[in-house]
Computed example of a mutant assay.
Amino acid sequence: MHALLTNDDGFDSPGLSAIRHSLIEAGHHVTVVAPDGNRSATSHAVTIRPELTLKRLTGLGDPNAIYTCSGRPADCTRVGLFTESLWPEVDVVVSGINIGINLGDDVNMSGTVSAAAEAALHGVKAIAFSQQGTAGGAPFINHSDHEYRLTRYAARLVEALEEADAFERVFLNVNLPHEPIETTARATRLGRRYYKARVSPVRVSAGEWTVAPYASADFPDPPYEKDDGTDFNAVISGVVGVTPIDADRRPAGHDSGTWVEDIIARAGDVTLD
């Protein structure tokens, strides 16, 4: 299996390094094409101008090459799928492991999720991984240290996806809990966040104000849907949540549930590295 690996946190993210190591350890060929810096929350933006720059960081003899790309996450996927001669054809696109969760409505902002969506648009199997920072919650922004202790299981999910029948235009969004409680992952649906905090502009001059971004620590954390079956419910309960998403962000439909359950079964038990 040849996996294209990307993310939105940048090529030097510990989450990307962790899943790369596990995929290589499992005997797979991995090519990294990741942003040359942090591109978090850039969603599905792509670069029209100027030309993108690729830089190889590993030696020419390394079969698992690492490239940086000057573009955004979706650019990295496009480069990885359509660039000729630098690497073999891609079997599956893996995005992540993201620093922090990507649940519910927030997937629409996520560069990590969009990199996987871009692959699905072109008929390539794709999966996005995100990591909960601390157990028990689903904060919009989590500044705690992240541990990547489920990367071998994540690699098995990638293998299971690659082996499974294709499901057109659908990719998987996987959120890994900080402390797994159950040994079986759960097929989930996207939940909702409720953004209610108001923003107070601060005047700096006539006709000019500053406005704090919603990610600021000054804002209360937005509440979220905790109903059974949601991705929020799974992660806060210590369960790996596997959500099928259509590439245009619509729910993937009822038929995708059986497909996801098959992939979960193929991957086996959730185990710590």
Rank of each mutant, 00 (worst) to 15 (best):
M1Y: 11
H2V: 08
L4W: 04
L4H: 03
D8P: 05
D9A: 13
F11R: 03
L16N: 03
A18R: 11
I19W: 07
S22W: 09
A26M: 13
V33H: 04
P35E: 10
P35R: 06
S43T: 06
H44V: 09
V46D: 00
V46G: 02
P50A: 14
E51K: 14
L54P: 01
T58Y: 13
G59D: 15
G59A: 12
P63D: 13
N64R: 04
N64M: 08
A65G: 12
I66L: 12
R72F: 07
A74S: 14
D75W: 01
L81Q: 07
F82L: 00
L86A: 04
W87Q: 07
V90M: 11
V92N: 03
V93I: 03
S95V: 02
G96D: 02
I99Y: 14
I99E: 15
I99D: 14
L103I: 10
G104F: 09
D106S: 14
V107K: 02
V107P: 08
G111T: 02
E118Q: 15
A120L: 00
A120M: 01
L121A: 04
H122G: 06
V124D: 01
S130Y: 14
S130C: 14
Q132V: 07
G133Y: 02
T134P: 01
A135Q: 15
I141T: 11
D145N: 05
H146C: 06
H146M: 02
T151D: 12
L157S: 08
A164W: 01
A166C: 10
F167W: 03
F167G: 00
V170F: 02
H178Q: 15
H178K: 13
E179N: 13
E179F: 02
P180N: 11
T188S: 01
L190K: 05
R193P: 10
R193T: 12
Y195D: 11
Y195L: 14
K196S: 15
S200F: 04
P201Y: 11
R203P: 09
R203A: 10
E208I: 07
T210R: 06
V211C: 07
A212V: 06
A212C: 07
A215P: 00
A217S: 11
D218P: 01
D221M: 05
D221H: 10
Y224L: 10
E225S: 05
D228L: 00
D228I: 02
D228F: 05
G229I: 09
I236F: 06
G241L: 03
T243C: 07
D246N: 15
R250H: 11
G253Q: 08
H254I: 05
S256P: 07
W259P: 00
V260L: 05
I264V: 06
V270K: 05
D273L: 08
D273G: 05
